[in-house]
Measured scan of single mutants.
Amino acid sequence: LCLSCLLLLSIWRQSSGRGKLPPGPTPLPVIGNILQIDIKDVSKSLTNLSKIYGPVFTLYFGLERMVVLHGYEVVKEALIDLGEEFSGRGHFPLAERANRGFGIVFSNGKRWKEIRRFSLMTLRNFGMGKRSIEDRVQEEARCLVEELRKTKASPCDPTFILGCAPCNVICSIIFQKRFDYKDQQFLNLMEKLNENIRIVSTPWIQICNNFPTIIDYFPGTHNKLLKNLAFMESDILEKVKEHQESMDINNPRDFIDCFLIKMEKEKQNQQSEFTIENLVITAADLLGAGTETTSTTLRYALLLLLKHPEVTAKVQEEIERVIGRNRSPCMQDRGHMPYTDAVVHEVQRYIDLIPTSLPHAVTCDVKFRNYLIPKGTTILTSLTSVLHDNKEFPNPEMFDPRHFLDEGGNFKKSNYFMPFSAGKRICVGEGLARMELFLFLTFILQNFNLKSLIDPKDLDTTPVVNGFASVPPFYQLCFIP
Rank of each mutant, 00 (worst) to 15 (best):
L1V: 15
I11L: 06
W12C: 11
Q14R: 09
K20E: 12
L21F: 13
T47S: 15
L49V: 07
G54A: 01
V56M: 09
T58S: 07
R65H: 00
R65C: 06
R65S: 05
M66T: 04
E73K: 10
G83R: 11
E84D: 15
L94P: 04
G101A: 09
G103R: 02
V105I: 12
N108S: 10
W112R: 00
E114A: 15
R116Q: 05
R116W: 01
R117C: 11
R117H: 05
T122M: 13
R124W: 07
R124Q: 15
G129E: 09
G129R: 04
R136C: 13
R136H: 06
E139G: 08
A141T: 01
R142C: 07
R142H: 13
A153P: 00
A165V: 08
A165D: 00
N168S: 11
C171W: 14
R178P: 03
R178H: 07
R178C: 03
D180N: 11
Q185R: 09
M190T: 10
T202N: 13
P203T: 10
C208W: 09
D216V: 02
P219L: 06
E233K: 06
S234R: 14
D235G: 14
H243Q: 03
I249F: 12
R253W: 01
D254N: 05
F259L: 02
M263I: 10
N269K: 12
Q271H: 12
Q271P: 03
T275I: 09
I276V: 13
V280I: 11
I281V: 15
T291R: 02
T294I: 05
T294R: 01
S295G: 15
A301T: 07
L302F: 12
A313S: 08
R321C: 03
N326K: 13
N326I: 08
R327Q: 04
R327W: 00
S328I: 07
C330F: 05
D333N: 03
D333H: 09
M337K: 00
P338L: 01
P338S: 04
A342T: 02
E346K: 00
Y350H: 08
I351V: 05
I351N: 01
D352N: 13
D352H: 03
D352E: 02
T363S: 15
V366I: 07
F368Y: 14
L383V: 03
P394L: 08
E397Q: 14
M398V: 14
R402C: 11
A422P: 02
K424I: 05
G431V: 10
R434C: 06
R434H: 08
E436Q: 14
T442N: 04
N449K: 12
L450R: 01
D458E: 10
V464I: 11
P472L: 06
P481S: 04
